[in-house]
Design a protein around this nucleic acid. Structure first.
Lengths: 197, 197
DNA sequence: ATTATCTATAGATCTATAGATAATGC
DNA sequence: ATTATCTATAGATCTATAGATAATGC
């Protein structure tokens, strides 16, 4: 009973915060406005979320869930290209309607990445890294860097591409992310440099 | 005379801010401490820098200067690989002793990238993009994406790699950045996928 | 006289903490 | 009785603005 009430309040605060973030921006908004919209005291906001960033971390985790799920549904012997395009599609599906909050979420993701090095707290990182390891074992991945490093790098790239997209969300996000995945795989070198290698 | 005094105060505030940022973190520090260290009133800080982020933007611009200079000193027909490794070396040289402020600078860089789309305000972006265009004309660059987009992407990648490095600055930053540049050029695909293409 | 640089300060907002209320466990 | 959830509030910090001072331009 108490737990149920708590979760309900927390959710109300969470949704109110996202609404206000979208309207006034994360840096610019007042916590009073969030509390008012959620019909709680300002202190209640702080009880559930020590800072505004904690709300964004929760959004980051929610965004990771469908991506992790989509990858986990793929058979373990799925070709590597297919894994990458699945990640791209799931990410695009989540973020295509939420360009405004992307930058701030990317920012907390950057910050988290350098604070907690705990791969378990971030399910997607672990799930994607596993597929990278399998691909490396099948020679579908360059051996010059550890699979985990390449995996993190791929996720970073995708995030960067989404931020760039959010500045001018005219074109299709999924097309952009698929392009980034292919670039990651094949490299930016043109025919002349390629021929030499 | 007035200009000279102004610039001197501004510089004192700037250096004091960086010192306090390094000690207490950007988010955690108090502007009062910065003002005190610079021996001016808190209002003087706000006169020169509307927000803490403006100090970081100045540091970002200062970090770009040696990178731009190093690239401009290369002959226009310099091989593309050499251009990339020059950027990597110059970036590493500037940031190797400043791991703490990297994340916050990367954050403002992200934010700027999505606000001002003015390539002229950011000298390095323009200078590097020019070399990418030349490389594309010489067939050293993949034609699937515009040279400017690839250029921005390369800079993004380097920034991301530095942030990752700053979390565990044990290894050599320059080695890491050179590795990223090579990965950018040749892609992450292993022998099996490469053979097919 | 005018303007640029810097200061002092009022009001807004945040952070930390003491306290109220109602659910839980014994 | 104890604890979890939430509120009220004091003190800290920030933001906006009116004002002081000294350099500049006429």
């Amino acid at each position: 009973m108490r737990d149920k009430q708590r979760e309900e309040t927390r959710r109300r605060v969470y949704l109110a915060a996202l609404e206000v973030f979208r309207r006034d921006g994360v840096a610019g908004c007042r916590i009073d406005d969030i509390a008012q919209k959620a019909e709680v005291s300002r202190s209640a906001f702080y009880f559930h979320y020590p800072t505004k960033d904690d709300v964004l971390i929760e959004l980051l985790r929610e965004s990771e869930r469908p991506v992790g799920k989509a990858v986990e549904e793929l058979p373990l012997d799925t070709p590597f290209e297919k894994v990458l395009s699945t990640v791209a599609a799931a990410m695009a599906d989540f973020w295509k309607d939420e360009p405004k909050l992307l930058i701030d979420v990317a920012t907390v993701a950057l910050r988290l990445n350098s604070v907690v090095m705990d791969r378990e707290a971030e399910p997607v990182r672990g799930i994607v890294a596993e597929r990278f390891r399998l691909a490396a074992a099948r020679n579908e991945l360059s051996p010059v860097l550890p699979a985990e490093v390449l995996s993190d790098f791929f996720l970073f790239n995708s995030l960067a591409a989404m931020v760039a997209w959010s500045a001018s969300p005219g074109l299709d996000l999924e097309v952009a992310l698929q392009g980034v995945a292919m670039l990651f795989l094949t490299g930016a070198a043109g025919p002349k440099l390629k021929a030499r290698s």
